[in-house]
Design a protein around this nucleic acid. Structure first.
Lengths: 337, 337
DNA sequence: CTGAAAGCGCTTACAG
DNA sequence: CTGAAAGCGCTTACAG
């Protein structure tokens, strides 16, 4: 019951292994009749390529790597990553590529994983998430020569191709929407300050609140956990001139913020309007449902995967600017009373 | 700048490739001095084994596969899977094993993925989640001879080793706790009816409510989504003799249930007590926080990974019974008024 | 303890 | 269009 190899097929077809290889890979070098015969035999014996043998001679592993550098509890609770992975996979598996995943403790560990993957030829390329300001991974990956696509940007991606989207405009639109409802004191509970997109959002928040002359606007940094969201919200809401609206950089913190408002017997949206960034299904489970900034994350992942495969194939892949997040208004926002 | 191979090391050390292989793998066959010299050179040139070459000769890929068969939106929103993956990885990466992940549409697709992985020798073994009643994957995997560990049980796992935990006892304890608080009308919003653990919980619910003489106890099936949780809760709460307590089979539905109760201006826990199964951090974000049945999921994953590696190594791995879920009471449960 | 060789299952120039 | 051969980078009997 050994697995059939191309040698077995060659023997049964009465041709050389080379001919079998050409036939099976759809390459020229065999006549149509021979090709047909070979394919039929392969089908009949249930031949499947040995991935190790292919990788060893072709020097391609047909695997793409993703190292995630967030604590397990954040990864688990943030729908973003699993949605991204689903999108990646839809594209990868359609092209017979595998995805290997590793959860790492920090950026150094992530880089070490990338080095090892590449040195061992376990992957043909990697996806890079959570881009930081002056991210050390960018020059390191460039030096390694490991094909990579950065999910994030713009800029700070060096010579690596990126898939990114603008966060400044949606943030500005959201503040304008809240201001139009009559809010004057708006707070922004931001994510990890070292992440590039946190900086983009924070700067956009500063710019638009300055432009709209909202001097009491404030940004507070967090680590994306619900605990942080709750703690910061309690502090904000117990200040003398508390905000009437809060924008949270993820959905988990927004839910925590809603919980705190309810705990303090504040009416949402009468006393406090809440906006979540990342419109996961969680936003529609609460009462009131959360107004949220959402994007099609699986589609985003699919584009990143497609670009990475192109980069692996040696194509000159440029940056891809994806559509910005859209604001969906729900019960958690309204005029302050 | 080609990557160094054992041939390079052998040349520099003035020994054969075989000697280098023995030295690098800690096998007998080389003297201590030669081994030292070889290891030093390998270190110096930054040698890393080519995984394909190793797999081709050793017939091991050092990769474990996990196929997840849930829609992307459920996977994303359920903390369970990412926590499980974190736990798997902690164990796997410590033993230099990789994890390859694939999201599939249904059980047939999952089996096809397993077959392909094994045929292509991409994995040395697989983890099987979401065990069903008379699961067709069990005999199929047994026939393939692909090392596998089932996460779930008991029974219905054929000859495959499993890592499981009892859901009947925690369910019974929860109902007893609610009954002790004075609840007489208790509902159970169950998960997918085809999953084995759903059946275990449902039967346990039936048994304990019968024993406690709670004739109005009812179980309703769902698909784990928040929408289903909300829809079922609305129906339950609008019935003439509505339940005063509901046990939800996951945290997402429990949160949706809380939202519906708030929408209907019911007091939680005064009018309705809520219990969530799966005590993810989400349960502590709501107001009131949710009473929940929780377990250490990463640790569960780590045990499953450890057992799978043992099975791959040819050890005779038995079933492992993990600790049952513990009930943590929070603000969402209390005496009915 | 060590060396030389075969082999894992493919791919790919290189001759015919 | 086809065949015979080398090679990918390891591991592992098999001789010395």
């Amino acid at each position: 019951m050994k697995r059939p190899t191309i040698a077995d097929i060659a023997r049964r077809a009465g041709v050389s292994k080379g001919a079998v290889s050409y036939a099976l890979n759809g390459r020229p070098g065999v006549s149509a009749g021979t090709r047909q015969r070979i394919l039929a035999i392969a089908e009949e014996v249930g031949w499947q390529p040995n991935s190790a043998a292919r990788a060893l001679s072709g020097s391609m592993s047909n695997v793409v790597g993703l190292a995630l550098c967030r604590p397990a509890r954040v990864l688990g609770i943030e729908p973003f990553f699993m949605e991204l992975i689903s999108g990646l996979e839809a594209e990868l598996s359609a092209r017979d590529y595998g995805l290997t995943l590793q959860v790492v403790a920090d950026a150094d560990a992530e880089l070490a994983v990338h080095r090892r993957w590449w040195a061992e030829r376990r992957v043909d390329g990697v996806l890079v998430c959570d881009l930081r300001v002056d991210d050390p991974r960018v020059p390191a990956l460039e030096e390694l020569g490991l094909p990579a696509v950065v999910i994030g940007g713009p800029a700070h991606t060096g010579g690596l191709p990126s898939v990114w989207h603008d966060d400044a405009q949606p943030l500005a639109e959201t503040v304008e929407y809240l201001a139009a409802l009559g809010h004057r004191r708006i707070a922004h509970v931001a994510g990890l300050p070292e992440l590039l997109h946190t900086r983009v959002r924070t700067e956009a928040f500063h710019d638009v609140t300055t432009r709209l002359a909202l001097p009491e606007a404030v940004t507070v940094s967090s680590d994306y956990t619900g605990e942080a969201g709750a703690r910061i919200t309690r502090r904000l809401l117990s200040s003398p001139r508390r905000p009437t609206a809060v924008i949270y950089d993820n959905d988990v913190m927004a839910i925590a913020g809603l919980g705190v408002a309810q705990e303090l017997r504040l009416d949402v949206p009468g006393d406090l309007s809440i906006v979540a960034w990342d419109d996961s299904p969680l936003c529609q489970l609460t009462h009131p449902a959360l107004t949220a900034l959402g994007r099609d994350i699986p589609a985003y992942g699919a584009i990143a995967a497609k670009r990475l495969l192109a980069a692996i194939a040696g194509e000159d892949v440029g940056d891809h600017r994806d559509v910005p997040a859209q604001l969906t208004t729900r019960g958690s926002t309204g005029a302050p009373r």
